[in-house]
Amino acid sequence: MTKEKILEIKNLKQHFGSPSSPIKAVDGISFDVYKGETLGLVGESGCGKSTTGRSIIRLYDITDGEIIFKGQNVHGKKSKEEVKAFNREMQMIFQDPYASLNPRMTAGEIIAEGFTIHGLYKNKKERQMKIYELLEAVGLNREHANRYAHEFSGGQRQRIGIARALSLDPSFIIADEPISALDVSIQAQVVNLLKQLQKERGLTYLFIAHDLSMVKYISDRIAVMYRGKILEIGRADDIYHHPVHPYTKSLLSAIPLPDPLSEKRRTRIPYEHTEVPDSATYYEVDEEHFVYGTESLVTEWAKARTK
């Protein structure tokens, strides 16, 4: 089974601030995203996971490296037309459903804004039908098209955000903490919706979050990020059940589970960061399971891991 690469990130660097003392938000990461999968990107706040997402979708000009989407360089010089074509293919869902919707536009206008920009569905009736179709696809109904953002609950707003992201029929969606601001029962609704839409439309997701149990649930593969670097990447089950990097182990040991008996005897594994030399790179410890470090360190970690 050969998997088709939809996105390739090669040595991506995103530095902020002055060139003399840059803040290295993303410091040389490489990974691939395959068509139709969900790649979860996890890490603590400030580790660079959101920056990675925003760099991929061209919200930042990258410092170094290459982002190749469907064979084309994302950050290369592009004409207006090329940029538009790219924007149709890749869309984003944001964290805060309160801040990401324009309060002066109705849900219908928010969803249709992309149509205006890209000159689609110029026929009014056709456009209306498309808006209805999108609203229904995300579990809202037609009457909602004429309402303003403040008339919706948090979960419903996030559904509008999803409908907007879907409006141009993208193939790749970056979801930046799409459920963090929602209540538990609503989180499950939105996650189920994302899964269902993926199945129906063959979407590929980059799912950025800090809630590890939700990421495990939604992702096929997971990348663990820390201080601007991806430390470990692999299949979701492998990362959770056979973590290799000490940071991943520490992170996993901190997740509280809804099981009081096991919680009572939980021992958190503290993490002490060891600087790795510049020669550090990715080593494959298992099939599709890569760990960042020097050869000797990775061998040592791989030996010590819990089977």
Partner: peptide, 21 residues
Amino acid sequence: LGSMPDLDNDAEELLHTIPGS
């Protein structure tokens, strides 16, 4: 309890949600 995934959740099954708000 059903709407929160645990680490052993089967990715194929949907989460149990509470409909409505």
